[in-house]
């Protein structure tokens, strides 16, 4: 960090802007804390700002779906010490990446009558284009990881983000496993934790909104879903709703398998 307050830039690409909203909402809790940093550029928070940097930290929100975004991203990377994707879209493709399931033109023509002026490309996460220094996962980004990030900034340490599966948090909360006990198609075993096992705590199965945990064994879970009677399409939908382009969840996208292993 340079002297004085850390300089922060917040950039938004293809997404719902929920993560930026989460940041602003979070500020309400800890006004003093965000007073200790200097927000140099954040469209939702303030007009103007210095888009060119330099930044100590750049928080990147949203999936990369257009060429200009890649170019800007590379520029940000070159003037920033720590680039951190925030939220599932930037971390693992998120909801916008569902479109990767189909041909680009098919998708475009389904939405727009005139596709001649569209310049969109396949949806990918931020780390596909530039090296990143950490991820704040979540949809929107999780408060626990955000708090860890902010306090780490104050202490001058590398943040330790949560990297274990939802199952761990779920058990720490003493929830009964909805996958085993009720045969609900829960994505918990392959999904990164941080939400506090929100859905299983409220009697629902996890739908994987935080994206994949590292080393997730998606294929084994897809097999289990298949044995439970889920159709290939349903299983594929579970593994492409968030994190379509990720290597961890690719093996669970059964439509691309030749045979479902029994």
């Amino acid at each position: 960090m340079s002297d004085g307050k850390p300089r922060i830039g917040v950039f938004k690409y293809s997404c719902c802007a929920g993560c930026e909203f989460q940041l602003i909402f979070f500020q309400k809790h800890v006004l003093e804390t965000l007073g200790k940093v200097e927000i140099v550029f954040c469209r939702m928070l303030q007009s103007g700002g210095v888009e060119e940097g330099p930044f100590d930290v750049a928080l990147i929100e949203g999936t990369i779906t257009e060429q200009w975004q890649i170019e800007q991203l590379r520029k940000i990377r070159s003037v920033t010490t720590y680039v951190i994707p925030i939220g599932s879209c930037a971390v693992c493709g998120g909801v916008p990446a569902i479109k990767n399931n189909e041909q680009e033109y098919t998708i475009q023509s389904r939405v727009y009558e005139d596709t001649s002026r569209l310049t969109s490309i396949r949806a990918h996460s931020v780390d596909q284009y530039v090296p990143v220094d950490g991820y704040i996962k979540g949809c929107p980004m999780g408060e626990r990881d955000l708090a860890e990030f902010v306090t780490s900034l104050l202490l001058g340490k590398r943040p330790e983000f949560i990297q274990y599966p939802v199952c761990v948090e779920c058990k720490l909360q003493h929830n009964i496993c909805v996958l085993v006990a009720y045969h609900w198609p829960c994505m918990g075993p392959v999904t990164n934790a941080g939400c506090g096992a929100l859905c299983p705590s409220h009697d629902r199965e996890c739908y994987g909104c935080w994206g994949p945990m590292k080393n997730a064994h998606a294929r084994a879970l897809a097999n289990r879903f298949a044995k439970m009677g889920l159709s290939e399409e349903d299983i594929c939908r579970r593994f492409t709703e968030f994190g379509e382009p990720t290597v961890e969840w690719k093996p669970g996208q059964v439509r691309r398998w030749d045979v479902v292993q029994k």
Binding site: V30, P165, V168, C177, P189, A220, L221, N223
Partner: peptide
Amino acid sequence: ARCLGCSNCVLVCPTCFCYKMVDRVDFEA
């Protein structure tokens, strides 16, 4: 073939003792 690495087995095991230390800092550090 099957292990998800989800840790369910060890978290429900009544004899497992392993723990990790976690430091949480308040917002004034």
